[in-house]
Simulated assay, not measured.
Amino acid sequence: MTAAVEVEAPQIIDGLSADDYHADRTSISSTGLRALLAPGCPAQFKYDRDNPQAPKREFDLGHAAHKLVLGEGPDFEIIDFPDYKKVAAQRLRDEAYEAGLVPLLTKEHDMVQAMAAAVRQHPVAGPLFTPDGGVAEQSLFWTDPRTGVRCRCRPDWMPHRQENGRLVVVDYKTAKAVDPAALAKAVYDHGYHAQAAFYLDGVKALGLHGDQEPAFVFVFQSKTAPYLVHLVELDFPALALGAARNERALRIYAECARTGVWHGFNDRITYLPLPPWAEKKDHEEYA
């Protein structure tokens, strides 16, 4: 007989800072679960969790766009230089990071303003992000009943659910390209289907969805002019595949936490073939 899993009550925390949310060690997020699976592994996940990385420049535009679209997130500091070649610009950038601000060159600030304007003008995304029409970045905590693992998620935006209406969980992401083929690849490569399934589990665990099945909608926006916006809702097979990945990762996390062993890829020698396209590529190059 399987032992009963102790389930801690679900919880919504308003006003929890992003830093405190990410620093929580009593629960695991969707990002953490995805890091446990290939191409990652538990050992790398634990190291990265215990050794947080410095801010990455490639995330600055996304953070600033989030601030303008959602009204939540770190403030930004405008760096009045065309680039970071000069020492003075580098110093201002580093000071901004130390103060918890997102540094933006003048041209980058103009860019994120245009991006936010494009979202507001979109016939669906604009009304979806009405400032008083929802809640940004609530922190949700619940316990997975199968493994006893404490979970957390932080939806970018949840519009207020009308009476007898469907709850929509919204995630805003910037991307290089937002055509359907590019987005399908990005969703799979980055595990966004697992993120969607995980967040839906969270809102259902907290009973926020009412009598209807909740929806998860991605608002993707291109980082190049004219900053096109593309709203996406994943189909059932994609969500089912994401849920299966989450279940595997939760079981791995539960076992690692129980034993204290955070394993790498393999303790034995791996018999490694070349990719299936390698032979064809060599024949084409040297024919």
Rank of each mutant, 00 (worst) to 15 (best):
Q113K: 12
H160S: 12
Q121W: 00
T147Q: 01
Y97W: 15
E108V: 10
P155N: 00
E95K: 15
D132N: 10
F129H: 07
V169W: 00
I78E: 08
Y84T: 01
F141K: 00
T147A: 12
A96D: 03
P131N: 12
A181R: 13
I78P: 03
A186W: 10
D94G: 05
F198L: 14
L140M: 14
A114D: 07
L183C: 13
P155Q: 05
D132R: 06
Q121P: 08
P103K: 15
P180G: 04
G100P: 07
H193T: 05
V135T: 13
E77K: 14
L128I: 14
P131F: 05
D132P: 04
D83K: 14
F129W: 03
H109L: 08
E95D: 06
I78C: 05
V119W: 02
F141I: 00
K185I: 12
H193I: 02
R150C: 02
L167T: 08
Q113Y: 09
P155R: 02
A96W: 01
K86I: 09
W142E: 00
Y188E: 15
L200E: 15
H193F: 07
A116N: 07
P145Y: 04
K86N: 08
G165W: 05
K173D: 06
M158G: 04
G100I: 13
M158R: 07
